[in-house]
């Protein structure tokens, strides 16, 4: 199941026009492909992908997004507040 979710996350990240996305959007995309996926499972899979250096966190300081490592992400800051 976790492997299936991981694949769904990577597919979503690669297919998305946006280079960074909120957890909720990633969760809904995964649940379309893996209907039984619970929020906790998606979080576990996303954390595993971060640890495997496939995904990265992107934080404005106040809110956090996920992205695919090497895709459109730099250290350039973005909008947001603390």
């Amino acid at each position: 199941m976790i492997e299936e979710i991981k694949k769904a996350i990577v597919d979503f990240a690669e297919g998305s026009k946006k280079t960074k996305f909120y957890f909720k959007d990633m969760e809904s995309a995964v649940q379309k492909v893996v209907p039984g996926a619970k929020m906790r499972d998606v979080k576990k899979a996303a954390t595993a992908l971060v640890n495997e250096e496939v995904l990265i966190y992107f934080s404005t300081g106040s809110s956090t997004m996920y992205g695919l490592k090497g895709r459109g992400m730099t250290e350039d800051p973005t909008e947001g507040t603390d």
Partner: peptide, 10 residues
């Protein structure tokens, strides 16, 4: 400017 991918591993 603030925010970005800086962080510590994990």
């Amino acid at each position: 400017k603030h925010g970005g991918i800086v962080g510590v591993f994990g």
